[in-house]
Design a protein around this nucleic acid. Structure first.
Lengths: 201, 201, 201, 201
DNA sequence: TATGAATGAGACTTCATTCAT
DNA sequence: GATGAATGAAGTCTCATTCAT
């Protein structure tokens, strides 16, 4: 164990855990840009500045890397929710959620929604990675649903949540397809107004 | 003579334009199921019941086949619009559009929107097929926009069109991700109500 | 037979023999430009303005077309020799031969010697087309040898012939490689002077 | 330990730079025998005793392999020149050059000049490999030119160099076409005599 | 004769994955 | 832990040749 610690400190930022994390965030980034099928391990290794042969020390297969990217999205989601939960009212939380989407519009113009495009691609595969991704999507839906419940819309909270997330996915796709960030701005404004109307008085 | 006739009819179904068309529709179908990158020419050839080598007689590259699939979507869109245009009011036309989407929910559960998932995947590529697909998307948007104009919403017809198509894309993705056709039904109902509210008295 | 004649006259320039000849000269031309291996039957068909499927009516395989091109070179050689034989002295004949080479220098710059490059390529193959081409080369050598004999150089006429033809092949290759027609001019001048020196007083 | 050493030596011969070099020399050899277009990567892999898939670890495309073969010719040329430069007089150097050619006559009988046939084939292609090969040819020409200069033939050294190299290319082609090594012997003798006559004294 | 269509063998190339050190 | 090298399965594409009419 002492030995292990020594090694760690000797190697600094390049050592094990750091590399693993670097690989994961690199994967998330590259998958967003290129999609799963068009991304090679070499691409990921390059982006992470890790030798190709070394990737397999951390991830036994390409699938495991994709899985790690899904987990990374889940982590980001948890962090986002944690921040939003600090806001006092559900209406403010949802408005902040939409505001964040609109802020990311330039990325959406180029590559669409980081998570939506991933989910869409995974659903064409025969493995179970799509089920894994679906859980993350469900988590987001549930949180949004909770906000609508808190706003007094218990009866159709689920439908409202589906509408909000669906609208986000749809406007991301259109923003990307039309290469127009204003789509995101305009639709974001409509969503905000809609949330306001639901937030009551 | 019987033999000759049989041959002829066999030929008739097998050769020329018929085969090309078969290849195109097969491509559209397989791309929907498997996505562009995970579809091999062998897959398409099998689906079209055509020898692999023969595919290249009709389409010199895989890209041309994908392009033909995009054109096929455009053709389907034109046909759909032609049918919808028979309806007397813009409100009825849009409701019929949404109704068609909901009817297709079982396909959406399995593979998402046939065109949306294609567009999404093409945007990860470096060629210009995504621009081609974008035009088809624009055509649909324009037609929907016209309906909203006809309903007297000239000022924000474009935004309304983006909302409607975006909602469709989003609910298709969620239907697919959650493997739940009811998402399509519920969201379709909401969209119809929304259209009604816009159609005025 | 009557039928055959009728067909022929009905079809005019496009009929059998004309097409065959067109195919042969087209082959000779294309092989010079692209080489045997890089030339497809489609290239030849296009150059000859003959439908691809029709080529096989005249030549059962690509090899037969190449063989026909070799024969075409032989025919050209016979015609050249016939013209040169009109000249009064062997010295004049050889000088005219060299003069013709130099005149063709622009073609040599682009593609080398039409026959030499063909021979060179055929020698890499395992079939016997190279033996066929060798005969044509031998015929040229023999004629040149005869000229040197007629000039009184019986003893080393063969060697002199090999030197002359070899020089031509070498300067064609260098002209082509260096993309410089002046190589052909300069070396042609040297060859002419050399022939003069052998032609005696 | 013995085992370990054996492994090491096996590795030593199989891996790294050794393998790359083996691939290059194998390529040079096979290209000479079969020509560029008729050589498959499998042929080269077999000749180098390397699995086909592994070739691509060292050379990303067939073109790069051909390029490496050209470089290999250049290396051989440099080595040859280095040896020849040891000789005291330019006349001796050129005679040694010709002597080397004649010694290689059996290879010329079967496949022609290793470099000339390559250059000839590359000129039919549309890429720039022919320009690369031309530089090597130019280097040889320049060295020969320098020898003629050193022999006092400054005025027409370039032409003399073109004649010598051209003669070599031509006699190689004829030796190959006629399948006769004596062509090389006889023409070599003539070239040597010619060099002697130019060496003066 | 003539020809569009068909076909399969084989070429080049990519890449996830494994291995030896 | 780390890494360059190795490997083979699979994909796209070309093309000579054949076929049916």
């Amino acid at each position: 164990m002492t030995d292990s610690v020594q090694r760690k400190s000797r190697r600094g930022a390049d050592a094990g855990p750091g590399k693993r994390e670097r690989l994961v965030t690199a994967t998330t980034r590259v998958l967003h840009r290129q999609g799963v099928e068009r991304t090679t391990l070499a691409d990921i290794a390059t982006e992470a500045e890790v030798p190709v042969g070394n990737v397999y020390y951390y991830f036994r297969t390409k699938d495991r890397l994709v899985e790690a990217a899904i987990d990374d999205h889940e982590r980001q989601l948890r962090e986002l929710i944690a921040v939003l939960d600090e806001l006092p009212t559900p209406g403010e939380r949802l408005r902040a959620l939409v505001g964040g989407w609109v802020e990311q519009r330039d990325l959406a113009v180029r590559y669409g929604c980081p998570f939506g495009t991933l989910v869409s691609e995974l659903d064409k595969r025969e493995d179970d990675l799509d089920r894994h991704a679906a859980e993350v999507m469900r988590r987001l839906l549930t949180w949004v649903e909770e906000q609508f419940c808190a706003m007094g819309h218990d009866a159709d909270a689920r439908d409202l949540a589906l509408s909000l997330i669906g609208a986000y996915q749809g406007m991301s796709l259109l923003t990307n397809t039309l290469r127009d960030p204003d789509v995101m701005v305009g639709q974001g404004r409509r969503l905000t107004a809609w949330i306001d109307s639901l937030a009551g008085g």
